Computed example of a mutant assay.
Amino acid sequence: MLRLTDLSEVPADLGPTVLTLGNFDGVHRGHASVLATVVEQARARGARAVAVTFEPHPLAVLHPESAPPMLTSTADRLDLLEAAGLDAVLLMPFTRELAAQTPEEFVKAVFVDALQATAVIVGKDTRFGVRNSGDIGTLRELGTQYGFEVLALEDVGTDHRWSSTELRQLIGDGDVAGAAAILGRPHHVSGTVVRGLQRGRELGYPTANLSQDASGLVPADGVYAGRLIRHALPESDPEHRMPAAISVGTNPTFENVARTVEAYVLDRDDLDLYGERVSVQFVRRLRGNDRFESIEALVTQIGRDVDTARAVLTSTT
């Protein structure tokens, strides 16, 4: 898949294209449905399947005080878009200058001149152009003027519209199982394994601590069943994806602890993961974070958490 970050990088012979437009944060099942239609239509027309998206999120530029936390990193978003079968992604830098373009200026520069669109596939609530003044009606008028077809897809979901906003709420509440139902996969956070305070090892449950600059929306404090993914190992390696009990929070039994994400790989005390890039997948929340009156009580509860995590992960693929 071509990964383009500026209109000047678009090959002159990329078109014709079938394209879609959106932020695609999380690349959830609603997004996947749109992307599948883009790929299907592109193949039928002998065209390239392309997604146009932005970095950073438009609100981070226009209204930073209300910009949402991102569900996935840009790298993860691009990987997920590639996995959807696209031929190219145009990741446009979102600037105030871009935001000031009229709907027609944006469509002509991006869809027509650069990407030679033969069809544009979007959701019915799509807005674009200065002050979001362009809508699906505007897009259809421009399609007639510039020679591309517009397909507006119905909302995709079980009983309501799936959205990145809902995903942020679910993950913020710790409902990672509910989030997975919308994502079509477990939510994950990625980072480099760093040395922590070694308390887990002292208690008999050594953990892989993610760096503070880990990417992905961190769920509510608590204990989770999940998996640890080692990026350096191939998927065929049995240690690429390992069951884990995960702790998120400040560990209230101890004082002056920064908020961390740490994962104990079940029944493993021999792993040396320092410096590795890993992802932690969250499958189900087991409990909130509690303060224990003694180290012995904490260790007993950790043992119960490990047993519960094992049972949960044994019943899920």
Rank of each mutant, 00 (worst) to 15 (best):
H31S: 11
E166G: 14
G216Q: 05
V107M: 05
V189G: 02
Q169E: 13
P64N: 13
P16T: 08
F111Y: 11
I229E: 05
L21S: 07
R29Q: 15
A208F: 05
T102L: 08
L298M: 12
H63L: 10
R285E: 00
P234S: 13
A109M: 03
V110K: 04
N251D: 13
V38Q: 05
L203T: 10
D159I: 01
L78H: 02
D125W: 01
R48S: 14
L98I: 04
H188P: 00
G222Y: 09
D155I: 00
V18Q: 10
G303R: 09
V265A: 10
L183D: 12
R3M: 02
G222K: 11
E276L: 14
P252G: 10
R287I: 05
A32E: 14
S163K: 07
R201G: 15
A181H: 06
D269E: 07
T74P: 01
R291L: 05
G129A: 10
P69C: 11
T314R: 11
H231C: 07
S279Q: 08
A263L: 06
A180Q: 14
P243D: 12
N209E: 09
V278S: 08
S190P: 00
R140E: 11
Y205I: 05
A60Q: 11
P68D: 06
A60V: 02
R304P: 00
F292R: 13
R304K: 12
P238Q: 13
V189L: 05
A47D: 02
A99N: 04
L273D: 07
V278M: 08
A244T: 05
P56G: 14
Y264D: 06
T138C: 07
F106Y: 15
R268V: 03
G147D: 01
E239I: 01
S66D: 12
G15A: 07
F254C: 11
D125L: 05
L35K: 09
L62P: 01
N289Y: 00
G204N: 09
R277D: 07
L139V: 04
V306E: 09
A232N: 03
S133A: 15
A214C: 14
E82W: 00
G178W: 06
N256S: 13
H231V: 04
L203F: 08
D221L: 09
A84E: 03
G157M: 09
L228T: 06
S215W: 02
N209I: 06
V130Q: 09
V306L: 11
A12H: 02
A32T: 06
P58G: 12
D269R: 15
I229W: 11
V156D: 02
H31R: 08
D305Y: 08
S164E: 03
T250I: 11
T300L: 10
D307A: 15
L19W: 01
T102R: 00
W162F: 14
V312R: 07
V283S: 03
G174F: 09
L139I: 06
L7P: 01
E255N: 13
L59N: 04
P69Q: 15
A109P: 01
V261C: 01
D237C: 12
T74L: 08
P238K: 13
G30K: 12
R45L: 14
A99F: 02
L7D: 03
L233F: 10
D6G: 15
